[in-house]
């Protein structure tokens, strides 16, 4: 028996206020929230704007291309993950930044500014179920 691992959490993807975000991933769409009063785009999505505190948030689809802002390759990871794992912060064409795996490149293949596109794949989430999520693919 494993004594300690990152324990499962059970986010209720069917009932969460940002259910639409998770549902859209299944359709190959990546969404963020945008405040319809002050115009601020939020990622991770939020139900209230962190800038003007309006609750009039609308969903927008994010661009599918961006550039590497920074990156690393993890070799030591918690119990339950298999290294090495290449991850990056990517800045999309509209300035929104995202964090995920780079699935087709190692550290040595990457540099800041490299172009990537958004792809979607099934990922093990910490409820130990597969969920669709977005990943990066170097162009």
């Amino acid at each position: 028996m494993k004594i300690m691992e990152v324990p499962p959490r059970y986010p209720n993807f069917e009932q969460t206020a940002i259910k639409k975000f998770w549902d859209s991933l299944k359709e190959g769409k990546l969404l963020a929230t945008k405040c319809s009063e002050c115009g601020k785009t939020e990622f991770p999505p939020k139900i209230v704007c962190t800038s003007c505190y309006s609750d009039k948030m609308e969903w927008i689809e994010l661009p599918k291309r961006g550039r590497i802002y920074s990156f690393t390759e993890m070799h030591v990871v918690p119990t339950g993950f298999k290294p090495p794992l290449t991850v990056a912060v990517v800045e999309l064409e509209n300035g929104v930044r995202l964090f995920s795996y780079v699935v087709n490149a190692r550290f040595e293949d990457l540099k800041v500014g490299d172009e990537v596109e958004i792809d979607f794949q099934e990922m093990n989430w910490y409820d130990y179920k597969k969920h669709p999520y977005f990943v990066f693919r170097k162009v």
Binding site: V6, R9, P11, P44, Y69, S70, F71, T72, M74, V76, V77, P78, G80, F81, P83, L85, V87, V89, F99, S100, Y101, V112, M123, W125, Y126
Partner: peptide, 21 residues
Amino acid sequence: RDWEAAFGSNAPMGFAMFATR
């Protein structure tokens, strides 16, 4: 937990991002 740890992230990951940049 939702937006980082689910990827196996840990403390060295974030500081490595600063280092790379």
